[in-house]
Amino acid sequence: MKKFALILVFTLTAAWTFTSCNKAENTTDKQESVEFDEFEEASSEETFYRIPSPDEMFSFLNDKELKYQPELLNPSANADNYIDRKSKELNFGVYAADLAYTASFHQFQGSVDYINIVKRLAEDIEISAVFNEDMNKRIKNIFENADTLVNVTNATYYQIVNYLQKSDRNQTLSLLTAGGWIETLYVVIHIIPEYDENSATVQHIADQKLTFENLMLSLEQFQEDPAIKETIDDFKEIGKIYAQLKVVNAETSTKQNQEGNVVIVGSKSKLHITKEQFNQLKQKIAEVRNKITGNTNV
């Protein structure tokens, strides 16, 4: 009877565990029902660096003169070349950025192609649970409503980030974020025809110094990981160029609006990038990005 009782307890516990796991798998995209204590650490204060997703940078590209240039993106065929964990995770971020780019230009077929690559790499790095039934349904629906294309890619990115955080895979997240950032900047810096001091896009490229600094701090949290250490070393060269940027007065640059509760924040100064620095950055970004993707084009 003792044996029976033990079996009963075991069976009940196992049954509960099984149903819980299924539940978690089925609701991943909504992040439901899964305990995650990524905030849990021994120290009394924790810091979280929130890096904007690639789509946010692309959302500023509303200049009609900026044409869609798919040749800048990492070819889908390259996905087969990424064998080790580091290259898979970095290039997962690269392809996620390419997906955001195609989506921002409302390129449906291109977006679907990149979604498929992202899904394939997701399996390789064991995060395919992100693409559950709900997410796949949303992806299919993009053909019915153009407005949801960007929303879906944005939501996908967020679900991936959260999935990695709750799975305590912060190293993977760091590499993915680094890959996404470098690809985003690579694309943006190459689609503008030439340096223009007054270009808003050039200003956004200069402003990426702030994101870069957060990204590096985020990576440094896990620098004991050799893959991340190597990535930090590669990215340091970019940091040297960003370090040259000067802060200039921008007192008259902000138009005051009178929205009810909006608080205007930020200093009256802004980063300024010279043509020489811009070209140096462009070259360095291409070098680092092509090292990651294995491409030879600049």
């Binding site: 200003q203 929205e259 909006v262 009256k268």
Partner: peptide, 9 residues
């Protein structure tokens, strides 16, 4: 609600 005067952290 925040409106950044310039890019900021």
């Amino acid at each position: 609600e925040f409106k950044p005067a310039n890019a900021m952290n």
